[in-house]
Design a protein around this nucleic acid. Structure first.
Length: 458
RNA sequence: GUGGUUGUAGCUCAGUUGGUUAGAGCACUAGAUUGUGGUUCUAGGGGUCGUGGGUUCGAGCCCCAUCAUCCACCCCA
């Protein structure tokens, strides 16, 4: 067999020891905040049944699901007519019954329905696992990436929404981000706007178009709205709403008058007011919470029914680093009615890229070996083994250089692995029982008993 | 799915109007220093120039195809 150049699939990455230290720092920070707010961790399988996932993310989303080919002779069951027709879509369901999870929310909904008799409502869970999307990769976009989700089902209180805002604020602040904005909108307000214009059936097209405002400008939005079937008069009504500005309170007042005839719209506004009120009372005093009511915030997922969240860093040009919202009907698709849920997600990989770009990773990461014992020959090695054991019994991360080698090489090894201390054991040390402890940072070296070394390193 | 970018050593990249034996830095190995790393100096190993075809006396360079890559759009974390 010919030697082949190794490679990994497009949009996937290896993570080095150094990168893992940084990634775990992000995961641990986010997880501890989740726990602090009463969320418990679960995990679900990497793959779900294909029909669990299809139809939940819209047509665009379905295309991005990674399907898993059935094992064995997967074409045997497909009828000759279908093979002849060569219609990929109709054959897919026959040759693939599993798929890699696309997000953590739908598997969570599936979990809740399957375990509904075992979980106490309201159920607050968090989940940190990779998801896969068959996207074209680009900056900040990968085919395999981690999401950190927290969701609660079985509670329609807006207190949950308020706490999610605080979780965003606390977790991202803890990670060292100083300037980020949490955008909030409400699907009911969007519905209300579509109602007022008289095109409630076009709400999706409307929200997708106005979502692009800051990217393509008002002219672009108008152009797209016209293409989607809105009339000139509709757009005239829409314009002032889209261009809404001022403080959050001012925006709410203006929206109230615009949406006066829409029951749904007014309900959305009432929800926002309650939410802002909760946040005001819950937030840490003096915290620089940047919260913005953004009426153009839509987000693609069609299952949001209430609040919609999105978080963006103002310091780095990057897509959103988090998002979420309320979905009233999610478990309904799996036969469990009237269960409301709300959740948020952190995009760990994008947060990594942002922290890297801003140089915000802490330098004092202490996840390497604490002390290396040198190895000159068989005799010294034998002498070192009980010492190695003692160090480890005292909870000190220690390693013995696994074979005799030149000291230069062993010190280089310690240096490249950033091991802070090296114990040198030669004939002199073996005779006296005093071991040479070298501090790799200062270069200083002193002779100590093992007990002293342990005290020094603990 | 659409448009563009770039493919040369393990990594980051030079390589002139097409011309002899394709270079540098970093990394690696060895030595200067037989028990002292990070700085320095010296030497060394390492290349199907993404792949296939074409033009030419001659191609890393020009042409075609193909694959990969990154970026942007769509959409999204």
């Amino acid at each position: 067999m010919a030697i082949q150049k190794p490679g990994i699939p497009k949009g996937t990455r290896d993570f080095s020891p150094e990168e893992m230290v940084k990634r775990n720092y992000i995961f641990d920070t986010i997880k501890s905040v989740f726990r602090k707010y009463g969320y418990q961790e679960i995990q679900t399988p990497s793959m779900e049944n294909l029909d669990t996932l299809t139809g939940k993310y819209g047509d665009e989303g379905d295309k991005l699901i990674f399907k898993i080919l059935n094992s064995g002779d997967f074409l045997a069951k497909v009828s000759p007519e279908k093979l002849e027709a060569a219609n990929s879509k109709s054959i897919t369901s026959e040759i693939s019954e599993k798929a890699l999870r696309y997000d953590l929310t739908v598997p969570f909904a599936r979990y809740v329905v399957m375990h509904q008799n075992d979980i106490a409502l309201p159920f607050k869970r968090f989940q940190v696992q990779p998801v896969w999307r068959a996207d074209r990769p680009q900056k900040g976009r990968y085919r395999e990436f981690y999401q950190c989700d927290a969701d609660v089902v079985g509670s329609d209180s807006l207190l949950n929404e308020a706490e999610f805002v605080l979780i965003y604020q606390e977790a991202l602040s803890n990670l060292g981000l100083k300037d980020f904005i949490i955008k909030i909108n409400n699907r009911k307000i969007l519905s209300g706007i579509a109602e007022i214009i008289g095109k409630p059936e076009l709400i999706i097209d409307m929200t997708v178009a106005i979502d692009k405002l800051d990217k393509i400008g008002m002219d672009g939005v108008v152009k797209e709205l016209l293409e989607k079937g809105f009339g000139e008069s509709d757009i005239e009504k829409l314009k002032p709403i889209i261009e809404l500005d001022g403080s959050n309170a001012e925006k709410i007042e203006k929206l109230k008058s615009v949406l006066i005839k829409s029951e749904t719209g007014l309900k959305g506004i009432a929800e926002l007011e309650t939410l802002f009120n909760y946040i005001e009372q819950l937030k840490t005093p003096n915290s620089k919470l940047q919260l913005e009511l953004d009426i153009t915030l839509a987000r693609g997922l069609n299952y949001y029914t209430g609040a919609i969240f999105e978080v963006k860093s103002n310091e780095v040009a990057m897509g959103s680093i988090g998002g979420g919202g309320r979905y009233d009907d999610l478990t309904g698709m799996f036969g469990l009615k009237d269960l409301t849920g709300v959740g948020i997600s952190f995009g760990a990989d994008r947060i990594y890229d942002v922290l890297e770009e801003l140089g915000l990773f802490p330098t004092t990461t202490n996840e390497t070996t604490r002390v290396l014992i040198s190895n000159f020959d068989e005799k010294a090695e034998a002498f070192a083994l009980p010492i190695l054991s003692q160090l480890r019994q005292n909870g000190i991360a220690a390693e013995l250089y696994p074979q005799a080698a030149k000291l230069k090489k062993q010190l280089s090894y310690a240096d490249s692995k950033r091991i802070p201390y090296v114990i040198l054991i030669g004939s002199e040390e073996m005779e006296s029982g005093l071991l040479s402890l070298k501090n790799m940072q200062t270069g200083e070296q002193q002779k100590l008993t093992l007990a002293n070394i342990v005290n020094h390193l603990v």
